[in-house]
Structures are given as C-alpha cells and as structure tokens.
Design a protein around this nucleic acid. Structure first.
Length: 538
DNA sequence: CTAGGGTTAG
C-alpha cells in the first residue's frame, strides 16, 4: 500500500526521505519501517548512504536492538558511530549485558571506541549493577584518555552509585573540574537511592540551578525512604516557587506519597493538577492514580480511572493496582472477575497478582478459594513464595483450621517466616488453642528477638491464661534484650488535614468521640460477621 | 565530499 502510494506520486526518492524524516523514535510502527526498508531494497536505494543511515537510526531508537545489531553485521564497513548506536540500543534495552558483548565484538573487528562509546557501556553496567564491569570500563576510560569528558564522568557517577559504591561516585564528583546539572543530579540521586537523604538534601540545596530532575529525584528519595510528609513539603515548596513545573515523573512520586499517607484530598488535588496542566496520562501515571485512589479508600474513583484505559494498553502493574485495591477493600468477587478479564486481554499475571487475590481471600475468610488460587499459581508455572504460603496459613488459621495450618507449615518446602508463625499464633489465640499458641509464641521470640510485638504477644497470652509470673517474665526479657515497645500508629486524612493516631492514645482533643465511634464500628462489624451477607460494589 | 551518535528523575 505504501509502495503504491509512493510510486503513483512518481517521486519515490523524495517521498521516502520525507516519510523517514517524519518518524519520531517513539511514534512509529516497527512494521511500517520494515515495509519502507523492503521498498528501499526493491528499488535499489538501500545502498545509498543517506537512507541506510536514517533507517538505521530509526531502528536503533525504536528499541529493536537485536534487529539493529543484525543490520550492523550486514553493513560491509560499519563505523564506530554504527557500533555506538547498537551498544546504546542494548544499554537501554532489557538486555544491557548484550551491549558489553557487542563492545567486545566491535574490538574484534578492530574498531577503536571513542568518547561516545563509554557512557553507553557505563550505563549498561549501572543497569546490571555490575561493579566489575563498571570498574574495568573506568580503567579503559583512563587508558583511552577520556577521563575528562563530562558525559563519561557523569555516567561514572551514576554507575558507582547504582552499584552501591557511593564513595567512589563522590570521588569522581569531587575530582571534576566543571560540572553540569546532570553531574549534580546524578550525585543527588545517588545519595537518595543509597538512602542517605541528608546528603541528598545537601547536594540539592547547594547546587546552582535546580531543574525538574533535581526536584523529582529529591521527592522520590523521600518517598522511597518512607518520609512521605517531607516529600509533600518539598513538592509544595516547588509549587510555591512556581518553577520548574512538575511533570509526569514528579507526579508519580507525589502520588506515591499520597497513597502511603492515605491523603485522599491531596491526591485529588494532584489529579486535578495533572488534568489542568495537560500532563500526558501515560500508563505509569495512570497506574499511580489508580493505586492512590485505591490505597486512600476511594475504590470507586480508582475504578473510574481504570475504566478509562484502553485494555490493549494495559500491563500487569496496572492490573495488580486495581485487583489489589479491590482485594484490600474486601471485594473478592470483583477482584476475581478482573483477574479473568485480565487473562482475556492477554496480560499475564505475576506473583504479586496472586498475592493480591490470596490476601483478598484472607480478608473474607475464604479458605477453599484461597487453595484454588494457590493451585492456579502453581499451574501457571510460578513457584509460590513465602508470602503466598503465609496467606494460606493465615486464612486457615483464621477459619479455625489451626491443626491443618500447623501441619501445612511443617510440610511446606520453605522455612517458616515470622509472618507465618504470627498468623498461626493469632489463629490459635482466637480459637482457644493456647497450648499451640505458647509453642509458637516462644518460637517467634527465638526467630525474631528484636521485634517488640513478639514479646508483647506472648506476654498477653500468659495474661489471658492468668500465668502472671510468665507474663511479667516476658516484660523483663524485653528489658534484658533492650527491645523497646513502640506503639502502633496510623495516619488518617480528615478534611485535608493529616491526623496521626497512636494505639491507645487518649491525648487527641476528640479522643472521647473517637473511641465512641470505634466501639460503635466494632459492634457494627460484629453484626455483619453474624449475618455475613457480603458486600457488592456494582 | 566526510556527517552521523552522548550522561540524570517515575
């Protein structure tokens, strides 16, 4: 079709040049370019350098690294530029190790690397987190005399940080004579990823021209470090300053902070910001929105966003977000329906998908269904992990099948984790198997001696059966091992303000009202449990 | 005739 069109126009040559120029790396279909390629071969243009070069660039940028490599080997005399493009393709691909392979191959062909070659290779070793590759490349850089190239230096900082060698990253940084924003940002992100938020902040405050990458790196650092409030503060500061403008990447991190805080109003504001500023709603951002609404308790809004997304554009992360959201709201039936829908659009579930479904069963006490999901997981060729086993033990224990759960625990091919022992212990407590509970409680203290709750759990057990001396002994054991009891706490957002609640805390000004409501809710929950009609969403 | 290709944030 394409060919007919060009030939009728009478100027194949000109048309193809125009066509090729119009393609942007990410906005063309691989098959269309292949058609053009075929046309060029048929019409004898393929030997013309201009076409070959343009085509080659398009393939390289489209992420078809293997095809680009194939083209390269068919080129009678590829230059270092061509090799570089292939090496870059692989370093951005899912197979960065191949870019190092191609580098070796290139040298076998007698091609000498230049200062463009090294940043790609160093990036590949960063993605592989391979300090061995990284350091031997660094020595090659020194041998070839490219150590003062700022792109090379920047990539080395990133590589050392990605390999966890933050001091080496800093050494490269300190020895640089001049620095660009990328230099500062790489160092900042290095510290943030390393978990040293204090130093990340220092770099951020000190650097001359903070751009959107600087702000996004710092915000994401706080989110990854669990300092969600600080992440939002930094975001606010950026908004007040008015520039730089937040982009899609920034919003993904900020939405993550809202999710963890349960800050629904904040999250809605972010959603509005995204729409009003016409940020592109790519799949990553949409997934963050779905996740935010789901984690903030607004499952209907999560579904509204989810339903706007064309099914052929979805991936497993999006499905996990919505299935997990439904599951944690107790909508087991709906989450299973979406699981079926997901396989219909040919998105393969992963172990997280199964974990979401299993935890849904735990919430609603569905033992039989949990087993079915577990079997389905094994049928799909995945190997269940300890979290999956823990869900099964939990759901059995809650249902009072304590003996069965205990047998399962002993027969499974993994070592029991604290989560499994704890779940089983809770089951024993609520179903009166205090003999087994004591055994498990002791085992838990053994495997998890620094966890405050383990001692408290056992102490409470002894209190229940009025073995006061043993209960006291557990408290003393905590003093001896130096384990401190930290109260549990959570955040809730009420009309835009974040409120922190600490377990058994009576200091809140509305404490009396709050506990009245808690007791009311507990009674309501008991009623629902007595006549479990289930709840439906649609 | 001798261009062409680069590093950082989700």
């Amino acid at each position: 079709m394409l060919g007919n069109c060009c030939i009728r126009n009478g100027s194949l040559h000109q048309t193809l040049i125009t066509l090729l120029d119009q393609f942007q790396p990410n906005s063309f279909s691989f098959s269309v370019v292949k058609q053009i390629h075929a046309l060029l071969i048929v019409s004898g243009f393929s030997k013309q350098h201009l076409f070959a070069s343009k085509l080659f660039s398009l393939f390289a940028d489209s992420g078809n690294a293997d095809y680009t490599h194939h083209l390269l080997l068919h080129n009678p005399s590829p230059s270092v530029v061509h090799w570089n493009r292939v090496i870059r393709s692989f370093s951005n691909n899912s197979t960065p190790n191949k870019s190092i392979k191609v580098f070796v191959e290139m040298q076998q062909f007698g091609i000498i690397p230049d200062h463009y070659t090294f940043p790609f290779l160093v990036k590949a070793s960063a993605r592989l987190a391979s300090i061995e590759h990284g350091m031997s490349l660094h020595s090659l850089v020194l041998k070839s005399g490219y150590q003062l190239d700022i792109f090379v230096q920047n990539s080395l900082i990133h590589m050392y940080a990605a390999c966890g060698e933050i001091l080496y990253a800093r050494k490269v940084f300190d020895e640089m004579r001049q620095r660009t924003n990328v230099t500062w940002n790489s160092m900042l992100d290095g510290y943030a990823k390393y978990g040293d938020l204090k130093r990340a902040r220092e770099v951020f405050e000190f650097m001359p021209d903070k751009d959107i990458v600087s702000w996004s790196s710092l915000i994401d650092g706080y989110v990854k470090g669990g300092e969600y409030g600080e992440a939002l503060k930094v975001f606010d500061r950026m908004m007040v300053a008015g520039e730089p403008k937040a982009n899609e990447v920034t919003m993904v991190s900020v939405l993550g902070a809202c999710s963890h805080l349960g800050a629904l109003e904040q999250g809605r504001l972010m959603h509005r910001y995204i729409v009003e500023n016409k940020l592109s709603l790519n799949l990553v951002l949409l997934t963050s929105l779905v996740d935010m609404y789901a984690k903030c308790g607004a499952i209907e809004e999560a579904l509204v966003v989810f339903r706007t997304i064309p099914k052929h554009k979805t991936d497993v992360l999006l499905w996990n977000a919505i299935i997990g959201g439904l599951a944690s709201h107790g909508y087991v039936q709906e989450s299973l329906e979406l699981f079926v829908e997901m396989s219909k659009v040919r998105v393969a579930p992963d172990e997280i998908t199964y974990l979401c479904l299993l935890s849904a069963c735990v919430h609603r006490g569905l033992v039989k269904e949990a087993w079915e999901i577990f079997e389905s997981l094994k049928r799909s060729g995945m190997i269940p992990k300890s979290e999956h086993y823990a869900c099964l033990i939990d759901v059995m224990a809650r249902a009072g099948q304590v003996g069965e759960a205990y047998d399962f625990l002993n027969e499974m091919p993994l070592d029991p984790t604290p989560a499994m022992l704890g779940a089983l212990l809770n089951g024993c407590m609520s179903h009166g198997r205090l003999d087994l509970a004591e055994l498990l409680g002791k085992r838990l203290v053994e495997v998890d001696p620094h966890h405050d709750g383990r001692y408290v759990g056992l102490s409470n057990l002894y209190a229940t059966i009025k073995r006061w001396d043993d209960a006291k002994m557990m408290r003393q054991a905590m003093d001896i091992t130096g384990v401190k009891k930290f109260p549990g706490f959570s955040y809730v957002e009420i009309s835009g303000n974040l409120e922190m609640f600490i377990a058994h805390d009576k200091r809140h000004p509305k404490s009396v009202d709050i506990y009245m409501m808690v007791n009311f809710l507990l009674r309501q929950m008991k009623k629902v449990l007595d006549c479990d009609e289930g709840n439906t969403l649609y």
